[in-house]
Amino acid sequence: MFRSLTPIYFFLFLTLIVSCGDSPFLSNEEPSKAISGVSGISSYQGKLFLKDIEIIPRYTKKVELYDSNSLNFILINGSGELVDPEYSIKLMLWMPDHGHGSYPIVLTKISKGVYSASEIYFTMPGKWDLHFQLIDEGQIVAEELWPIAL
């Protein structure tokens, strides 16, 4: 009886070993020490506009995968003055190739034309677009994309 149960016990032991701790296949590649983030986070060189309002964003620190990232941005008009948009503003992360977003971004107004966005989670490596949107009664009236690759 014990001989017939031995394979079962061995199999259960093997399952227990494999299921405890880290996966045996995880990479041992060390993360790059290159500085990324702040103004250099995106390869996008153009200016960002929502209607006739320019957006100038900056991440507050090096952007990390799986971490809560934050950025500050200001909105200025053609004369360089800080302005608030006519409509409500919303930020959203989107992964265009995979067709999914991320955790809802929290937006806080600091002062006229100065905003802070937090809880920006990049949930996997790859190409992301940060969407700046103007919303009027639940509908998007203007949108600008700021690409980023992790």
Binding site: D22, L26, S27, N28, E29, E30, P31, L65, P125
Partner: peptide
């Protein structure tokens, strides 16, 4: 292809 680092671990059981 880009290889994940030790700071990008993801496991599915």
């Amino acid at each position: 292809a880009s290889k994940r680092t030790t700071d990008e671990e993801e496991v599915l059981e």
